[in-house]
Write a protein that binds this DNA or RNA. Structure first.
Lengths: 224, 224
DNA sequence: CATTGTGAACTTATTCACAGCC
DNA sequence: GGCTGTGAATAAGTTCACAATG
């Protein structure tokens, strides 16, 4: 404990359930759309309605991190967006490395959504000699053996793993050894990462399986 | 109730929590790797260990759907894999339509992981005239106006939405009108779908935000 | 007076622990 | 002896409901 009176804007972050963080990023996305539509404030019930949550859920989630609302008014979009970005850690730029410039890797290099949220892919890596040396969407493709060297110079904190399943763990180990602290993994394997390194996995076939389960068992409207 | 004695292999599927289904597909993936490695049986504790769950969790999840284990032995991989595929609905082929052959759409067309799990993208759609008529990875690209027509002939049940956010709802409405019953959405918006249609959203920037939260708040090992 | 923030009630999910089985 | 399936116990997450508030 640093102070006797708990600071409402910075509660113990490791006690926050993952589901809350997931919803937080959903709130952020929706708020950004709302701002685009010129809306100035939104109530917890309106926001919840758009995303399929209750008003209480929205308020509780946000209350984990501070007092962002205004009684009688709701939440001011322009105020809440930077607050959530701060919580998520995206109130600054993150430099990202990509490993694997196959099909998916190339799509990630061109994906605009990353830049919009402050992510910049600044280096890509491959084993295939024919891809090395190329520049794709402004990003230089290095040989994978250069990974540690390039990362040591560029202050890259996040890694995208877009290699075949068999190579994913090996690549992950290299990223970790090079000091990366978070990984987004597109290979269909569960990666082992050391304590202190975070990872999230995106497996497209698994996502579709969630859909087929719901379809085969009629009426599960599903995760966002 | 259809019978007095509850059938253990087919419980009410809509009562199964989404988180269970999500883990189920993770079990499936791991089991498929295990078979590839020549392992014949696995215990709930071993399987749990590999994925970061408790043994009880694994057993409870599977017990939702039937009696798949063998006391003293564990689960037989070759037996459990088809059982889970049946539960998830992937014990058959699913025909899939893709809308949007930009960056991401093209990557999806070439993605091998879909085919491995029984998904076949059989038609793609675009607005941009220069892409229409093309064949990418063996998949014909039709004009979006042909969507309803093509889908009516091909028994396509799932749709992949890989268009810009502004067009995603419109495209979704068309897919739904054409009889699709499940949607995997890559656009960074929350889609509205009618009752009875299932959807799952994959927002790459949001996934990365889950990583940055964990990194910015040290030690949340993260999903998967 | 619409709307937040929040304890208390409730619901859902996870883990424990052990009888039953191979 | 090793391991499952499961009811009971515990923990976590969600909703209710209402006092506080600009």
């Amino acid at each position: 404990m640093t102070s006797s009176k708990p600071n409402p804007s910075r509660p113990d972050p490791s006690s926050v359930p993952g589901a809350v963080v997931n919803r937080l990023s959903l709130y952020l996305r929706e708020l950004q759309h709302l701002i685009g539509d010129g809306k100035e404030t939104i109530s917890s019930s309106q926001l919840g309605q758009r995303l399929g949550f209750t008003d209480a859920q929205v308020r509780k989630d946000l209350a984990h991190f501070g007092h962002f609302g205004h009684p009688g008014i709701g939440y001011r979009c322009e105020e809440l967006v930077p607050a959530i970005r701060h919580i998520l850690g995206t109130d600054r730029q993150w430099q990202v490395a990509l490993v694997g410039v196959g099909n998916l890797g190339r799509a990630l290099l061109g994906y605009r959504g990353f830049q919009k949220q402050g992510f910049r892919i600044v280096a890509a890596f491959e084993v295939e000699p024919e891809d090395v040396g190329e520049t794709i969407d402004g990003v230089p493709v290095h040989h994978i053996d250069q990974l540690e060297h390039v990362l040591s110079e560029q202050d890259i904190e996040l890694g995208l793993v877009a290699v075949p399943a068999e190579k994913a763990q090996e690549v992950t180990d290299k990223l970790v050894a090079s000091g990366v602290s978070g990984i987004l993994n597109f290979a269909p394997v569960t990666l082992a990462v050391p304590e202190g390194v975070s990872k999230v996995g995106v497996d497209l076939a698994r996502e579709l399986e969630q859909v087929t389960f719901a379809v085969a068992n009629r009426g599960n409207q599903g995760t966002n």
